[in-house]
Deep mutational scan, measured.
Amino acid sequence: GPREVTMKKGDILTLLNSTNKDWWKVEVNDRQGFVPAAYVKKLDSGTGKELVLALYDYQ
């Protein structure tokens, strides 16, 4: 199956793709996968990378 990404509340993840309104593709610890968009919030990183903050645990 697809590689699952797990996250804990407060984690910072790299946002790869947010074109789908329900599932965003993120990368964390060299793993890529989809997380519910409602579970993360975009951060203003000030760099080229888009980052998101995990609002809830997800696994």
Score class of each variant (00 low, 15 high):
1 G>Q: 13
1 G>M: 11
2 P>T: 13
3 R>S: 14
4 E>N: 13
4 E>V: 14
4 E>I: 14
6 T>K: 10
6 T>H: 12
7 M>F: 15
8 K>I: 07
9 K>M: 07
9 K>F: 05
10 G>P: 00
11 D>H: 04
11 D>A: 05
13 L>R: 00
13 L>P: 01
14 T>N: 07
14 T>R: 10
14 T>I: 15
14 T>F: 10
14 T>D: 04
15 L>V: 06
15 L>C: 04
16 L>V: 09
16 L>Y: 03
16 L>Q: 03
16 L>K: 04
17 N>A: 08
18 S>P: 05
18 S>T: 09
19 T>P: 03
19 T>G: 08
19 T>L: 08
20 N>Q: 08
20 N>L: 07
21 K>A: 10
21 K>M: 08
21 K>E: 08
22 D>L: 13
22 D>T: 12
22 D>W: 15
22 D>Q: 11
23 W>C: 08
23 W>G: 00
23 W>L: 04
23 W>I: 03
23 W>E: 02
24 W>S: 02
24 W>P: 00
24 W>K: 00
25 K>M: 15
25 K>W: 15
26 V>W: 02
27 E>W: 08
28 V>Q: 11
28 V>C: 10
29 N>K: 07
29 N>E: 11
29 N>M: 08
29 N>H: 10
29 N>F: 07
30 D>H: 10
30 D>V: 03
31 R>E: 09
31 R>D: 06
32 Q>C: 11
32 Q>H: 10
32 Q>E: 12
34 F>P: 02
34 F>I: 06
35 V>Q: 01
35 V>C: 03
36 P>H: 04
36 P>T: 03
37 A>D: 03
37 A>W: 02
38 A>I: 10
39 Y>A: 09
39 Y>C: 11
40 V>Y: 01
40 V>P: 01
40 V>H: 00
40 V>G: 01
42 K>I: 12
42 K>N: 05
43 L>Q: 04
43 L>T: 04
44 D>P: 14
45 S>M: 13
45 S>F: 11
45 S>T: 13
45 S>R: 09
46 G>W: 10
46 G>I: 13
47 T>N: 15
47 T>A: 12
47 T>C: 12
47 T>V: 13
48 G>H: 08
49 K>A: 10
49 K>H: 10
49 K>S: 10
49 K>W: 07
49 K>D: 09
50 E>C: 10
51 L>D: 03
52 V>I: 05
52 V>W: 05
52 V>Q: 00
52 V>A: 10
53 L>A: 05
53 L>H: 04
53 L>Q: 10
54 A>P: 00
54 A>S: 04
56 Y>N: 09
56 Y>C: 13
57 D>Q: 04
57 D>N: 08
58 Y>W: 14
59 Q>V: 14
59 Q>M: 11
